[in-house]
Design a protein around this nucleic acid. Sequence first.
DNA 1: TTCGATGCAAATAGTTTGCATTCTA
DNA 2: TAGAATGCAAACTATTTGCATCGAA
Lengths: 155, 155
Amino acid sequence: VPVPPPASLRAERQEDLSTRAVLLLLRDRGCRVTVPRRLMVETLVAAQELLTAEELVGRVTDRAPEVHASTVYRTLETLERLGVVEHTHLGHGPARWHLTTAERHRLVCDRCGAITEIPAPIFASACAEVEAAYGFAVNLRHFALSGFCSACRSA
Amino acid sequence: VPVPPPASLRAERQEDLSTRAVLLLLRDRGCRVTVPRRLMVETLVAAQELLTAEELVGRVTDRAPEVHASTVYRTLETLERLGVVEHTHLGHGPARWHLTTAERHRLVCDRCGAITEIPAPIFASACAEVEAAYGFAVNLRHFALSGFCSACRSA
DNA sequence: TTCGATGCAAATAGTTTGCATTCTA
DNA sequence: TAGAATGCAAACTATTTGCATCGAA
């Protein structure tokens, strides 16, 4: 179950979210700071794109070959529980992980897989309407918006 | 790659989409009408809910035990290509299949899994805006809208 | 009588779990 | 030095594929 990021992190921009701040948060919450965790957080902070668990494993094992995929999955779960990262389903492939960012949504083309990031306000009033009518708080980050990009529509 | 339903089916309501019409369409498109296909279409037409492939296998094998899951998966693919059915990802579990219906979207609670159907017009203008700005045609049926229902938000 | 569809087995992708061991706090 | 986290192997879920056989048109 995802959780909103702690206020101490939420206010900052992604690029300000230092590895150190995340590790301190971990320690603060009674978790332990280990080599795999440190490498994972460094990788996620440095990443420009959304990473699959497998890509993350690869980047971590480049620096510490003994780190195992199951550790990465377990740590992602922990970091998500703390509100540091979240995952997004872009389509039929594996989930993609990233730091909890400002509200942006993603359009994923069903045909070519192209990803377009769009500003959240476009959907704000529709989401507010759903919230008013059904009491349901929509999270457009958990699943990408699926459809067809302009190139694939003409093709 | 999903495809819009043929005009002959699109205009009708789900409850009017008879098994016979679908089987005729199959034959018309050069496909063969077999026992597993007939049973699958009957089941999908009769179903009130969205079915997982496994549930569909179960309902079909109740009547013809020799039908295999791989046949069901392959036939779902065929029917989707013809525009007769489509699948929706509601969350982390298996995809759910249903006849191509009028535009309705689904809200799925991340915590309790409750499904709420909502009318499409709520998101129509936001989707139109995305289309105008990015040329991207959003399909809100392929992935459900994820979030938290009112009960789980208070809990 | 052809070739599209099937049943079965095995493979695959992505992720999760059990358990003995390690190492942080 | 307690117990949280790890590495590894194995299980698991959902789905796909290869292939010989079957049967609809």
